[in-house]
């Protein structure tokens, strides 16, 4: 009963936060709604006894990623409200909503139709893991120990690959935002005659900030 009430409250926070992200005109409000949604997800992780992931969810998603978003919003000064009435591509909005609702309907139909009685939907979708594939959760060991054993044991190659990925991302970010001496292409310059001077003085600041991240 407690579980169900915690689930319902945090699910409501998650959904309302997500709706806040896609409906708010101001990007700063969207970022703050995103934080609410991430916190709801962290609560659900605690409910499922994934304590370490819940911590990481708050620190990495709610902390680092959203702060990075806010940094970029403030740095570029795009925190002014967007006019959501303008719809450059006619029918895009309806088509997008239709695609999203249709996708949700397909997933839910698969979930409820696949299993006998609906309750076994998850198992019926993926099949039960075989004995040698399974890494059974031991309730007496803390989940962080088990996660570490799995990460540095079976998944150590994937773990190394993520280290490489992070290095590439850092180098890529530095290369992308560093001061470029090349002339702006004519087609782009034509668009940007008005705002060229206020963007060029931000350049060094941008580069420094991205290196920190």
């Amino acid at each position: 009963m407690v579980d169900a009430s915690v689930f319902i409250v945090s699910a409501a926070i998650i959904i309302l936060g997500a709706l806040g992200v896609i409906l708010s005109k101001n990007p700063v409000r969207a970022a703050l709604s995103l934080v609410a949604s991430f916190f709801g997800v962290a609560v659900l992780f605690v409910l499922q006894e994934a304590h370490f992931l819940s911590l990481v969810q708050v620190v990495v998603y709610g902390g680092a990623i959203v702060v990075l978003f806010l940094f970029v919003i403030m740095l570029l000064g795009v925190d002014k409200a967007e006019n959501l009435r303008i719809e450059p591509l006619v029918g895009q909005r309806y088509a997008g909503v239709l695609a999203g609702v249709g996708f949700c309907a397909i997933i839910c139909a698969g979930l409820f139709l696949s299993g006998p009685g609906g309750e076994d939907g998850a198992v019926a979708l993926t099949g039960t893991p075989t004995q040698e594939q399974a890494r059974i959760i031991d309730a007496t060991t803390p989940d962080i120990n088990q996660l570490a054993t799995d990460l540095f044991g079976r998944n150590v190659l994937a773990f190394e690959a993520t280290a490489l990925l992070l290095t590439i991302a850092t180098v890529g970010a530095v290369v992308l935002v560093k001061n470029q001496k090349k002339p702006v292409p004519a087609s782009v310059a034509a668009h940007s005659a008005a705002d060229s001077e206020n963007s060029s003085e931000n350049t060094e600041l941008d580069a420094e900030n991205e290196v920190d991240e």
Binding site: A50, L165, L176
Partner: peptide
């Protein structure tokens, strides 16, 4: 989930630097 987290962080770093680059040419 741990791996998804790492990929999400990398994606945001590269994506936001693309946005910064785009915004240098056009403010809005």
């Amino acid at each position: 989930v741990f791996f998804v987290l790492v990929v999400a962080a990398a994606e945001v770093v590269v994506g936001l630097s693309l946005v910064v680059m785009l915004m240098r040419y056009r403010a809005s």
